[in-house]
Amino acid sequence: MNVTLEGETVVALKPVFGYLHRNHEKLAEGMSYLGSMPYTDRLDYICPLTNNWAYALAVEKLAGIEVPERAEYLRVILAELTRIQNHAAFLGFVLGDMGAWGTALMYAFRERERILDFFEELTGARMMVNFMRFGGCRWDTPAGWLEEVRKFVKGVPNFLDEMEKLLVENEILLARLVGVAPLSGKRAIEGGLSGPPLRASGVDYDIRKVDAYGIYSRFRFRIPRGEYGDCYDRFMIRIHEARESVEILKQALDEIPEGPVLNPKIKQRGFRPPPGEVYARLEAPKGELGFHIISDGTDRPYRYRVRPPSLINLTLLEEMCIGAKIADVMVILGSIDIVLGEVDR
């Protein structure tokens, strides 16, 4: 990031990208459809399960694959758990950016570790899960897993209350967040912001509602919105979203039916979708994650593109930072919540 200052005030800011450009798209165009699945884990490495789902969703749309009921529920459960752990980690990181390195992160990671335990029990890996398949999930839950998740979900609001009590009335935190870098809803749409930063600016746009992909239309949940679009709104919206995720999780865990979790008709290895093009997106914890795939009928995608929410959410970073103090830049960047694996891919 090249920052030009006048005293302590930012007058220009140019982000420099590419330090983690790992050629995900080029690699994916040279390998089979299933082969890209583990690579999607490494895009936004804090929430691999939503990346998996977005890619599976795109391929399912491209080839017209149906997903069994139980797999849909399992996907929702996993995506919402991912959202909670991403937002927990966000709270830790943004506090770290503000200088409270340590305490908040310790609390946040305590909660995150519990969720990672569930992922590990289910998928075999803490972070790089590689769990979704075209037409379902890799395997069913181990015995008692859902019961444990149910117990855990009951405790999440306590954690959020604790976080809120710890942080929200803190005078220093308020001084660092309230009124910093406000962003209007109109400008946020123009800048292509998505996910929590967009909704913090007061725009009612959540892809879970708009597209109702998967089975999200069956759940009752609210879309939290901010009012001023400042750092405080962007910060608080994560806590509110995590609360809504808890609501979705409760419903999904109650309603999840028995049945298969993988469409048996789909040949996963050597998978060949019909020729055509697709763009599919979903509401990842950081924003709109989209996959654009052009298939020419062979076993490799002709064009494979990831629409990274983290990169596009940075479009307005310069605008937000101009006029702010240099010390606020880190907080503004932190409040957008980016992950570099996704910015550069």
Binding site: G290, H292, I294, D296
Partner: peptide
Amino acid sequence: FDYCSNVTGVDWINGVKKGIW
């Protein structure tokens, strides 16, 4: 249409492949 979500390029090295459109 106020929201431009995704911009991407495609290299059609020998012209458009058959059957996509």
